[in-house]
């Protein structure tokens, strides 16, 4: 059992063609896509709407069949039911049984995974705490907000302690605070050594959590690599100082010019609108 070496996700030459019924044209949703995700790694699949992210994930989870190529989870082909033992999935805009309460929902999915009664109870308490839904556990999902649904969905994905979670647009349509919570959760999973594959159409949303990203466009991979490598401007360096006097800044500028480096820009860094929002609303919600 050399599972340490086995990739959490392997996708090999995946092509998916949706054959149009009757007069409709066929759609090539994914074209010759290959990628690997190591155990414990956080991988981001970035691309505009309709580029084939959800389709790739569905093939990976055995929900649809590939037209060509293969996918596997921890070395088990996705078309086999047991490939789903080690994976949790949160679909795009998930809906669960609205008549069930948060706790019942987790119970339901836990039992589907064959988690025993006692272990399940402890696991559910732990998960509810993790996703901060303990207060809503006894309410039916009917009354949950979008962010709460995403979080119960995340808990659901984690219920059998999988070694991989697949999250399709986990932050789409969620307000910044909710989005922040979800990203914190992803970082938490990373801490625990759980591999994560997530998709997003917004690069900024994933850049702080992903170890590696793949940029997918029209069903094909256009760029893949470590996040820093992809977005750093290689011949530039950023220096951020606190409480620097005007005099010091002047000396740095002179130093730079004296050493044949081009001085590009100096000024006060801007906070992002998002962090401003978060700072201002911190502690005010709920």
């Amino acid at each position: 059992m050399s599972e340490k070496k086995t990739a959490a996700v392997s996708i090999d030459g995946l092509t998916k063609v949706f054959r149009g019924a009757l007069a409709r044209e066929s759609v090539v949703a994914v074209k010759e896509l290959s990628l690997e995700v190591a155990p414990g790694e956080v991988y981001g699949l970035i691309g505009p709407n309709g580029s084939g992210k959800s389709t790739t994930m569905k093939v990976l989870l055995g929900l649809i069949r590939p037209s060509a190529g293969r996918t596997a989870i921890f070395g088990v082909d996705s078309t086999r039911v047991e490939s789903r033992r080690q994976v949790g999935f949160l679909p795009e805009n998930p809906y669960f049984y609205r008549h069930l309460t948060g706790r019942e929902t987790l119970q339901f999915y836990g039992r589907l995974c064959g988690v025993g009664r006692g272990a399940l109870r402890a696991r559910i308490d732990e998960l509810l705490e993790l996703v901060e839904l303990g207060h809503a556990a006894r309410r039916p999902l009917r009354g949950y907000s979008k962010g709460m649904l995403q979080r119960i969905g995340l808990a659901q994905a984690l219920v059998q302690e999988p070694r991989l979670v697949v999250l399709d647009e986990p932050t789409a349509g969620v307000d910044p605070a909710g989005s922040r919570k979800i990203r914190d959760l992803i970082l938490e999973l990373k801490q625990r050594g759980i591999a994560v594959v997530l998709s997003s159409h917004l690069l900024e949303q994933v850049q702080e959590v992903c170890d590696r990203v793949g940029i997918i466009f029209n069903g094909s991979m256009v760029q893949e690599g470590r996040l820093e490598d992809l977005i750093s401007i290689e011949n530039q360096t950023e220096i951020i100082l606190k409480n620097a006097s005007a005099d010091l800044l002047e000396r740095i500028r002179d130093l730079a010019e004296g050493a044949d480096a081009e001085f590009v820009k100096m000024g006060q860094p801007r906070t992002t609108l998002e962090s401003l929002f978060l700072r201002e609303t911190e502690g005010r919600e709920e």
Partner: peptide, 12 residues
Amino acid sequence: MSPADNPGIFRK
């Protein structure tokens, strides 16, 4: 079932 004894991990 590891890649070692099953080089093509995918269904053959």
